[in-house]
Design a protein around this nucleic acid. Structure first.
Lengths: 146, 146
DNA sequence: CTGCGTGCAAAGTATTTGCAAACCG
DNA sequence: CGGTTTGCAAATACTTTGCACGCAG
């Protein structure tokens, strides 16, 4: 899979646990806490520590495989990033089932200049943070859990 | 000040510490952690507990006086919201001095429909999260601390 | 006075660290 | 083999809670 190449390129070793973490997110397609990931991986690995999860999620975020999200409560979530090679994109999450998707469309550049003038800031970075309801949830579909 | 009215309207009592917290943010104009606020208020109140800060910052966020920001590290910051009556606005923060400003300009509605089609989400909420360098920092100004 | 606000002490929870052993390339 | 990765145990840091007293309205 493509994610392995990224690990390689970033000089991170391919270990079974790392693969399992990525697969967890790919299969689940939703955002999750380190704890969630841990509970799941424990099914397949008799020995696995929570710190391992934390360390890897952090690294994966650094290399762009995962995105870190601030949850409602004081907790952080991670979601997988499917647009690996694409440069610029944003994420949208479903407030009902926690599904996460990404998209490229972005018209921020159009107003960037004006905002810079108004605020006297030089804008370096922008992120759209979208919340909504995904199609499955809208149709009252059952949210199967992984 | 206008903030008092808001407290009143929201049935929150006007206490010296609450006023001091708001003034801290108004004067400082930058985002800060609960701990930062605490350290500062301790100068003026011999007796003040960190939990008081936490409780009030949380309430202030609920009623729209403050905004909660996810920092780089696993920590939350608060910044004051100057656009009290205005409906829709976003924030920009300076990565150098932590200044926070708000502005109203927003062209998201233009692409909202298209994103909804592409992602199959019904968008309920959007937030721009902007980072940049403010004028003072760009000009190499000293960042006076409060 | 009446209930919200606060200090204090203590608990709770998320996250990080250090180090030896295991493992990838 | 040699440097990463991991498990384990423990530490750290941030945040929340419970309760009695105090103060705003």
């Amino acid at each position: 899979m493509e994610y392995k190449k990224i690990l390689k390129r970033k000089k991170l070793k391919i270990t079974p646990k790392r693969i399992a973490i990525i697969n967890y997110f790919l299969k689940k397609d939703k955002y999750a806490t380190p704890f969630d990931v841990w509970i799941y991986l424990k099914k397949n690995f008799k020995k696995i520590g929570l710190p391992t999860i934390y360390r890897n999620l952090e690294e994966f975020e650094k290399i762009g495989i995962l995105t870190k999200i601030k949850g409602e409560e004081n907790r952080f979530y991670y979601g997988i990033c499917k647009m690996l090679n694409k440069k610029h994109h944003h994420h949208i999450i479903c407030t009902s089932c926690h599904k996460i998707s990404d998209f490229e469309l972005c018209n921020f550049e159009q107003i960037k200049g004006e905002i810079e003038e108004m605020t006297n800031f030089e804008i370096k970075e922008h992120q759209f943070f979208l919340k909504g309801i995904c199609k499955d949830c809208k149709e009252g579909g059952v949210n199967e859990k992984i």
